[in-house]
Every structure is written in structure tokens, then in C-alpha cells.
Design a protein around this nucleic acid. Structure first.
Length: 741
DNA sequence: TTGAGGCTTTCAACA
DNA sequence: AAAGCCTCAA
């Protein structure tokens, strides 16, 4: 596919999108409609046919992976010239802009990026200062609340925020919010929201910056536009306002990030926002067979809040979509793995052709166990990120502190890691002294923080490590190599020595991870010889596990892929397993009490199904063990939305046993898809509850409600119920006089 | 005052 | 898996 003209491989709609180069363009691209091809051809067309210099093109996507892929395909089309197209994620583009111009609005050049964990640490510190118990008010909940507020337009408009502040019993949220922001600023740190917000404030508040950027970029392309938030929308709008050459691509049916502040109105109202918008609809699906698209449509059509549309299948008939119910999560995993094995035997499929999707990361464990037992290589995408591992975060905290000594979250993380005799009492005193003297904690240590006895040695060791690190970092990338600086730092901390001394299985794996981290530094250095420590840190803060070094041993090029449905967006596989199709899991409890929540879960299900080229297996367990104990599960309503004629129904009877060989899985053919009381009788026989999920009930005190989940068994059946006023309560069935309503 | 070991709690999705 | 809490030894 190196030839560009004529666009033989494009259909008329796609060609229209490629050829429309000037003025606003909205591409409504259904799943599998050749979106990436259109974007890359469009870029190629701008460069080749319209003689646009590559560096004038600004393209953003949502993941690093998608950005790399886009760049690779552009280079395939037009050669090394494509290297100069600016292709990044939104957050990475924001970092790029802020590093160059951020000082105009007071953002330091070596700013630190705080991830969710860092935010939680910060909030927890504030709570403790306020004599509040972080166990009663969960920092993670407060962080998501803060993030929610920061997604709002008011933040940027500078209007009064007070009406957005939630009332928290025993907590002045507004005070917390102000203090949180103040500490971020004092630490020279930005959270993920801030990266976007500060970028907007910069281009809006500094006309010089805006015109600089507008001179540099003249053509803008935004992928996954349905998932942009308000700040991202404004970034696009400001940057493109000089040329108006803004092309956005998206699909309202695939909007799955509203919880992260994505505003679906951005795509629905694009035509209203940008005059003379050309709209191109791509509705031909080249990816999936007819039964797969049919099942996906049957599900998504239940959303009331969507633009009516239906993808046309270019490919023909195929295998029916299968729903298999297994007795528990082990049976489910066994069914998935044995199906993979028999498909591999019957058809020339490779491990990498299979993907197992789940709603929550915790579900991966059972699949991993089963795949390992069968010696089948797999890779888990997402989950615990490489850079989130304790030992890596520790090393990174040292580096961050060296790059930005104001970063107190990092300082407190490592001041006593590995243990050097600086205990809680000393740390508390350091905090207090820094606070009363109104200086940073590092500054206090650097000037001389008086301590007694054996703590003295610890403090001076820590001080020396950081000072040496700073001296070395000042000469990166000049006379000192980044990798050498990092290696020396690790030596100086004796982090490795401490782990070697421990000599456990766990400590050995941590040592390997540190080696792996060093390798990634070498690699980074080779690719970015001009980068200093601060740029390195800013860039890896935006990486996810997908781009991180592979810490596992399996060959990623031929492994079964395990990931959350969210992570699957934009990808495709010949065979897809959509697992855990149960009420309470998918759709998830926490989204089940509002119509909007259910609709987003349904879009997520739609995204999952439409990733498949040839085969889709929906699986569920009738019983599942989770952290809250054993619970009976009702099949997902999404399964029931696919009519019997479009679904092959199976039941997998084994479970908990081992797979013995490569025999075909054993099925019992079950009845029609779940309608009404499909599982109820079986559950009662098994000693479960007399209630089931989604049932209407009457509570003597709270009135009418609907059951969200039934968990546990025997005397420990827990019922979670959402009541008419929207409140959610969990009861022990034993003690609750509930009636069926 | 610190550190180590054992126990419990935590649990939605992500850049 | 990691962090928090507890106890006990030094």
C-alpha cells in the first residue's frame, strides 16, 4: 500500500473525507469503517497533493499506541517525510506546548506530572493535616470528585466554582479543593486535568503564544472526538481558529469515557459550533461478518440517546455469535481456553488472533491461571502498569525529586526508602518545621535540618544522594548520559543492595524490574539523545503499560491478548471473547442506577462486540467469587437483548477441574437465552436468596426499590438496593423485612 | 524512636 | 499487590 494515487482502496465517502482539506470536517466513522485509513490517507494527501509541509499538520489520538500506529502508516504511505507530522496524544501535545510556553502562565519548565496515586497521597496528607480520618472519607473518592470539577467548563471560564463543591459530612470540600490546588502549585506539579486546563489558559491568556502555535500548525485532525472533554474541545478550537482546518473523527456509539469528563455534546454539536462544516458518514463496515454486526446492532439500538444508524456489512455471512454460560468463573475460563485450543486446531489461527475482554481488571487472574496451566502464551494489556510497580515508583520518585526539588509527594515517598533510620516521628517534625518556616521540605533539608542521634546519618545520606543526583542531572544530556545518571542514582540509594539482601522470590522479581527499567532508560536515551531528565520524566508519566517494557517472558507477537473492554477501543481481533456478561459486572453496579450509566455500559458492550472480525463469544458465570464473597449472577441484560435467532446458546458444565488435552469442550445445549426467571430456581436450590437482581422490592422504611445485586449465600446474603430517591443501601437479607413489590 | 513481621483491608473503567 | 495497622524487639 505504498501507492497513493488514485485512491483505489477508498470508497466514495472515504475519498470525500480525504479530499476535503480546507475548512471544518466532521467524519462520523462507525466501527470498522476504515477510519484509520481515512486519517492516514488524508494526511498523505495533504502532503503529497496539496504540498502542505508535514510539520504543519497536528494530529491527536487518545493513546500512544494509536499515535504510533498512525505515524507508522503515514510513513508507509509517504516515506520518511511523514516523521515530521506532529502526531501525539492530547496529553502529550499539552506537555509539548507547556514545556515551551508554560512559563508565560507560571508553569515551571521542569513541572512534575502527578498521577492518580500521587493525587491521593496529596489529598490524604491534607486530610491528616485537618485531623480528618482518611478511612472515613476515602481520598480516592475525593480525587475523583476534584477531577470531576476540573472537567467542568467553569474552571476555564474562571466563574465561581462554589456551586460545584459537594457537601461532605465533616469536611469543607471547598477548603480541601483550594488546599489541593495550592499544594500542587507549591510542588511545581500538574495533574492530568491540569495539563489540558493550563494549555487552554495559556493559549487563551497569551495571544503571542497562540499566534506562534497557529503559525506552526495549520491543519488539525482529532481522532476519537466523541471522547474529548471541554478543555480538549477548546484546545482544538483555539489552535484551529486561524485556518479553520479542523477535521474531527468519531462515533457517538463508541463514547465510553464520560466518567473521565468526555462530553458527548462535542461531537453532537460540532456542526453548530463550526460554520460550514462538511459532514461525511462512513457506514460501511469492512471488519466484521453479518452475525457479529447484527448482534452489535441489536444491543446498541436499545440506547434511547443516540443517533439512529446502522452499519452495512461489506463482508458476508459468518459464524453465529455464541453465548455460553458456565457454572462459575473457573468454568468460564476453562470454556474460553478450551475453545481457543480447539479453534487453533481446526482453523489456522494463531494465539495473537484471540482476545479475551473483561469489564474489570480483577477478572484477568482466572484467565491467566488457566492459560498458564495450558502453557499458552498471553499478554495482559493494562492492569498494573509497569511504571506503577512499587520499586519503579520509588526510583522514579528519586528522579522526580532531583528534577523538581519542590515535589514533596516524591520526597516523602523515598526519604526513608530503603530504610535509613528516618521514622514517622522525624518525618512529622520535618513537615511541621517546613510548614512553620514557610519553606519547602527539600530546602529545609538542604539548609540543614537538625536531628539527633542515629537519624543524623540517615538525613545526611539522603541529602547526599539527592545533591549528587542534582549535580549529575544538570549535565544531562551534555557531559553526563541520562542512563549513567540513573544507574549511579540507583547505586547511591543502595536500593539494589537492600533487595539483594532480602533474597526472596519477590525481591528477585523486583530486581529484574529495576534492570528492565534501566533498559528502558537506555532505549529512551538512544531514541532521544537530546532529552534531559525532566523531559524523560514528563514523557514516561504519560505512558501506559502497553508502551512500557515487557516485563513478562512471553513473546508478545504471538500471545493471546487479555484486556479490559475500555482498552480494546480502536483494536480488532479475529476471535473475541467478551466475558463476565453478568448483571452487576457488565453492566457494572456502579453504573446501574442511572439510565445514562446503563447506556454507557451498553456502548462499551457495543465496542467489545465490534472489535471482532470473525467470531464473538459472550460468556458468563452463574456464580462468581469476588472480594465480597460468593454471589449468584444473573446473565447480563445485554445478552438478552440479542434475539434467540441471532445467538447460539451453550452451557459449559465443567469447572474447577483441569483441562486434560486438546479435546473439544463439552457442552450441554441449554434452552433459549435468559428470559425472565431463567436462573431463579437453580439458585434457590443452591441455597441462595429468595431475591434476584433487578427485582422490585418494598422496604418498610425506604419504600420501593430495585435490587442491584445479590451477594453471598445462606445467612450472609447481602442485598444492594437502589431506592426511589436514588439512594443505595446494602442489607443483610436475614435482618431485613423486605417484601416483593 | 525505628524497623520488621504478621494480619487486614482495599477492589471500575484511564491518560 | 500494596498499604495500613498492630505488636514486639532493639
Amino acid at each position: 500500500m505504498t501507492r497513493l494515487d488514485p485512491f483505489d482502496e477508498l470508497n466514495p465517502r472515504q475519498r470525500e473525507a480525504v479530499n476535503h482539506t480546507e475548512g471544518p470536517l466532521l467524519i462520523l466513522a462507525g466501527a470498522g469503517s476504515g477510519k484509520t485509513r481515512v486519517i492516514t490517507y488524508r494526511i498523505a494527501n495533504l502532503i503529497r497533493a496539496k504540498a502542505v509541509p508535514p510539520f504543519e499538520i497536528f494530529a491527536v489520538t487518545f493513546t500512544n499506541k494509536a499515535a504510533d500506529e498512525m505515524k507508522r502508516r503515514v510513513i508507509d504511505l509517504i516515506g520518511p517525510l511523514g516523521e515530521n507530522v506532529f502526531v501525539r496524544t492530547f496529553h502529550s501535545a499539552a506537555v509539548y506546548i507547556l514545556r515551551r510556553y508554560g512559563d508565560r502562565i507560571g508553569v515551571p519548565r521542569a513541572f512534575t506530572i502527578y498521577d492518580q496515586k500521587d493525587q491521593e497521597t496529596l489529598v490524604k496528607d491534607i486530610l491528616l493535616d485537618r485531623r480528618l480520618d482518611p478511612k472515613k472519607i476515602r481520598p480516592s473518592a475525593l480525587v475523583s470528585k476534584i477531577s470531576e470539577i476540573k472537567d467542568r467548563a467553569e474552571i476555564i471560564d474562571g466563574t465561581d466554582l462554589s456551586h460545584l463543591m459537594p457537601g461532605y459530612p465533616g469536611l469543607d470540600f471547598q477548603d480541601l479543593y483550594r488546599e489541593y490546588q495550592a499544594r500542587l502549585e507549591r510542588s511545581g506539579a500538574l495533574d492530568f486535568n491540569d495539563l489540558l486546563i493550563k494549555t487552554v489558559l495559556l493559549v487563551r491568556g497569551s495571544p503571542d503564544t497562540l499566534s506562534d502555535l497557529q503559525r506552526r500548525w495549520r491543519y488539525f485532525m482529532i481522532d476519537e472526538y466523541q471522547d474529548t472533554n471541554h478543555a480538549q474541545y477548546l484546545i482544538c478550537k483555539y489552535l484551529s481558529s486561524a485556518t479553520r482546518n479542523l477535521c474531527v473523527v468519531g462515533d457517538d456509539d463508541q463514547s465510553i469515557y464520560s466518567w473521565r469528563g468526555a462530553d458527548i455534546r462535542n461531537i453532537l454539536e460540532f456542526e453548530r459550533d463550526f460554520d460550514e462544516t462538511r459532514v461525511v458518514k462512513l457506514e460501511e463496515n469492512y471488519r466484521s461478518t453479518v452475525p457479529i454486526l447484527d448482534a452489535a446492532w441489536r444491543v446498541i439500538r436499545n440506547n434511547r440517546n443516540r443517533k439512529e444508524k446502522r452499519l452495512r456489512a461489506v463482508r458476508g455471512e459468518g459464524e453465529p455469535v455464541t453465548w455460553c454460560s458456565a457454572n462459575n468463573e473457573y468454568g468460564e475460563a476453562e470454556y474460553v481456553v478450551s475453545t481457543i485450543m480447539s479453534l487453533k486446531k481446526m482453523e489456522a489461527l494463531r494465539n495473537r488472533d484471540f482476545a479475551v475482554f473483561y469489564r474489570t481488571n480483577a477478572q484477568s487472574r482466572v484467565f491467566e491461571e488457566m492459560l498458564r496451566r495450558e502453557n499458552m502464551p498471553y499478554r495482559v494489556v493494562g492492569g498494573l502498569k509497569f511504571y506503577d510497580r512499587k520499586e519503579i515508583k520509588d526510583i522514579l520518585a528519586y528522579l522526580r525529586l532531583i528534577a523538581n526539588p519542590a515535589d514533596s509527594v516524591s520526597l516523602f515517598r523515598v526519604i526513608n526508602v530503603p530504610a535509613r533510620g528516618i521514622g514517622a516521628a522525624t518525618v512529622e517534625r520535618l513537615r511541621d518545621t517546613a510548614y512553620t518556616e514557610e519553606i519547602g521540605e527539600w530546602e529545609l533539608i538542604a539548609r540543614g535540618f537538625a536531628v539527633k542521634g542515629k537519624v543524623t546519618a540517615g538525613i545526611s545520606a539522603f541529602k547526599k544522594i539527592i545533591e549528587h543526583g542534582m549535580a549529575a542531572a544538570a549535565n544531562v544530556p551534555g557531559t553526563v548520559k541520562l542512563s549513567a545518571m540513573v544507574r549511579n542514582l540507583i547505586e547511591a540509594t543502595s536500593y539494589r543492595d537492600a533487595l539483594e539482601e532480602e533474597n526472596s522470590i519477590e525481591s528477585r522479581s523486583r530486581l529484574e524490574n529495576i534492570e528492565e527499567f534501566l533498559n528502558s532508560v537506555y532505549e529512551y536515551e538512544a531514541r532521544n539523545p537530546d532529552a534531559g531528565l525532566d523531559l524523560f520524566l514528563q514523557e514516561i508519566s504519560l505512558l501506559t503499560s502497553e508502551e512500557a517494557p515487557d516485563a513478562g517472558g512471553d513473546d508478545p507477537s504471538n500471545s493471546v491478548t487479555l484486556m479490559t473492554v475500555h482498552n480494546a477501543k480502536g483494536l480488532e481481533f479475529p476471535v473475541v471473547f467478551l466475558t463476565g456478561m453478568e448483571e452487576g459486572l457488565f453492566p457494572h453496579f456502579n453504573s446501574s442506577d442511572t439510565e445514562a450509566g446503563i447506556e454507557e455500559e451498553r456502548r462499551l458492550c457495543y465496542v467489545g462486540i465490534t472489535r471482532a472480525r470473525d467470531r464473538v463469544y459472550l460468556t458468563s458465570a452463574e456464580m462468581r467469587r469476588s472480594y465480597s464473597g460468593l454471589s449468584y449472577k444473573e446473565p447480563s441484560r445485554f445478552v438478552a437483548e440479542i434475539p434467540a435467532g441471532s445467538l447460539e446458546v451453550r452451557r459449559y458444565g465443567e469447572g474447577a477441574g483441569g483441562l486434560t488435552g486438546y479435546e473439544l469442550p463439552q457442552f450441554e445445549t441449554a434452552g433459549p437465552p435468559p428470559a425472565g426467571r431463567f436462573w431463579t430456581d437453580a439458585r434457590q436450590a443452591a441455597g441462595g436468596s429468595r431475591f434476584r437482581a433487578r427485582e422490585a422490592v418494598l422496604h418498610p422504611k425506604y419504600g420501593r426499590g430495585r435490587i442491584l445485586s445479590v451477594e453471598g449465600s445462606g445467612d450472609n446474603v447481602k442485598l444492594t438496593i437502589v431506592f426511589g430517591n436514588g439512594s443505595r443501601k446494602t442489607f443483610l437479607e436475614k435482618y431485613t423485612p423486605l417484601e416483593k413489590a
